[in-house]
Computed example of a mutant assay.
Amino acid sequence: MAAGTQELELFVREALMRGQSKEAIAQALGQAGWTAEQTRGVLDAYADVGFVVPVPKPRASLSAREAFLYLVLFATLYCVAFSLGSLLFDLINRMWPDAANGYDASAAVLGPSMRWSVAALTIAFPVFAFVSAYLAREVERYPIKRLSPVRRWLTYLTLFVAASVLIGDMTVLVYNLLGGELSLRFVLKVVVVATIAGTVFGYYLRDLRREEVEGSGGRPVGRGLLIATAVVILAASAAAIVTTGGPAVQREQRLDARRVQDLTRITYVVNNYVRQHERLPPDLQTLAAQPGMNLSIVDPVDGMPYVYRAGEDLDYQLCARFVTDTASDEDNYDSDSDWLHDVGEHCFEREAVRR
């Protein structure tokens, strides 16, 4: 095959040197059995300029720098597409919760997922936009760079991934439709996947067709598409921040979670103390003073001790001051939790376990 290609290249060069037109050469090669694609590939390697010998066009080459830039471009594209889809899924779960799976749609579960998605989009999208704009300027200055091998391979790989996602998305839609499980929540998720994958597939397919048919330069990603994507990302990120309460609320929730962890740890130590001494400890200082015990008995913010009150038999109270309310919004937390609380000081009734 390599020898046949070499013979074809030698023939085309010789024919051009003898003054034959490209059309006449293509016709002769077609009659000899060469395909139009093989012929065009060799003929396109020479420029249509008047000179005593055929003038070759510059050929695309692969450099480490170019490979790095395109790898970053497509890696951030995948990151943006996945993170945006994940964020929109979380928002849909939050706005249209499933009654059969309510806790999975709670703020307690969705909060970390939304934060990861917003963080990824905040970093990946600007990098994608910057690299895309930089490569666009390079292609505009040197159109031959559109024929970069790594760009072609990654573009076709992206088309394959996007097409696979679209096919899978439509398959799941039909499957659920036949099973009678179609709902607004499910339809919205299907639309999100189809829109993201379809936009990626449609743009890069059109980009390749423009390159192969027209052979002209062009921007890797259109400015309008970048602006529209940025608007969607900003809107989704703003909705996520409003839903999760923002950094200040998140910190307050983490501090209250830390207080609950401290109180939970204290209950374990109280149970262990009762097993050893057959009675409740007189105070928290006694618990913390036990050898090898690393027990937090004070508030992590103001350093005020947690309140402990020993009652009759093995009953006791643990109290702490909280800054968030989980008791009035049980749907957003585990319904079996024993640590739901109001804002302000809240006391929990507990009973020590001997065994």
Rank of each mutant, 00 (worst) to 15 (best):
T5E: 13
L10M: 12
I25W: 03
I25Q: 03
L29F: 09
Q31E: 15
L43R: 03
R59T: 11
R59Y: 08
A64L: 15
L69E: 15
Y70L: 09
A75Y: 08
T76P: 01
L77K: 02
A81L: 04
S83Q: 12
L88M: 14
P97K: 04
A100C: 09
A107N: 12
A124R: 02
V131H: 02
E138W: 01
E140V: 00
E140P: 00
I144W: 01
V161T: 05
G180P: 06
L182G: 07
S183W: 01
V192H: 01
V193Y: 13
T195W: 11
I196C: 05
A197L: 06
G198W: 05
Y203P: 02
L208D: 05
L208F: 08
R209S: 08
E214P: 00
V221I: 14
V221G: 00
I227D: 02
T229C: 07
V232A: 14
I233S: 02
L234D: 04
A240C: 04
P247H: 10
P247L: 11
Q253L: 14
A257W: 05
R259S: 07
T267F: 08
R275E: 13
Q285P: 00
T286Y: 06
A288D: 08
D299T: 07
C319Q: 00
V323H: 12
A327D: 08
D338R: 15
D338M: 12
D338N: 14
D342V: 10
G344K: 02
